[in-house]
Write a protein that binds this DNA or RNA. Structure first.
Length: 196
DNA sequence: GTCGTGATAGCCT
DNA sequence: GGCTATCACGACG
């Protein structure tokens, strides 16, 4: 039974949400058709307690969305070229979020290939935060948008994840907080993950 | 396969 | 002015 995740789902412990999002399906409705891809890698960012979090030192124009209510997208621009997709968690004023780092294509693969023309392997279409936003055509227009919107939402399609299949390890691309084990991925789908 | 590097721009001090 | 929650490419051998 397919079920769309609502805002409430995200208003709780960020680590729990990060792990439980693994195996869920990201759905993107575009003018060209529908894209579906299974979430296989996430990272948790824990607000004031986490030196690696954008909001660690307080609110700035970039991270303001993280301080709003749970269940909205936080999309930021990085390295002058890429966007990263997060979903805000916890209650308002508590700036925590889950970064979606990699997805495994399920449907609309032709659209993803059109968005990333040079990639031949299906494994590499969306195995990284910058890659998946290009493949799914996600940019800062989604910043602050609710997860329940028609263009982009998260589906529970009944896919079962064995708790023992979840690998916990360190996050990628950080200096501050690099040692914290807040990255999670599915061992059985590691072929679609950014880094083992 | 691994390593080094350039692209590119907004944010923060 | 330095840094960044990245990626793809070319050199190597």
């Amino acid at each position: 039974m397919d079920m769309i995740l609502q805002k409430d789902y995200f208003r709780r412990n960020t680590i729990d949400v990060s792990k439980e999002l693994l195996g869920k399906v990201l759905v993107r409705n575009t003018p060209d058709g529908q894209i579906k891809a299974r979430i296989v890698e996430t990272e948790a960012y824990l607000g004031f307690d986490d030196p690696g979090c954008h909001a660690y030192k307080g609110m700035t124009p970039r991270n303001a969305v993280m301080f709003l209510e749970a269940g909205i997208y936080y999309v930021y621009f990085i390295y002058g070229m890429y966007h990263c997709l997060n979903i805000v968690t916890r209650e308002s004023g508590c700036p925590e979020a889950v970064l979606i780092r990699a997805v495994a294509p399920i449907a609309g693969i032709d659209i993803m290939q059109k968005n990333r023309p040079k990639i031949r392997s299906i494994h590499q279409l969306a195995n990284g935060p910058g890659k998946l936003t290009v493949a799914l055509d996600i940019d800062k227009n989604f910043n602050g948008v609710a997860v329940s919107c028609h263009e982009l939402f998260v589906l529970d399609d009944g896919f079962k994840v064995d708790y023992h299949d979840i690998v916990e390890t360190t996050r990628i691309g950080l200096n501050q907080g690099a040692d914290l084990p807040l990255r999670y991925y599915l061992a059985s789908l590691a072929a679609y993950v950014s880094k083992k």
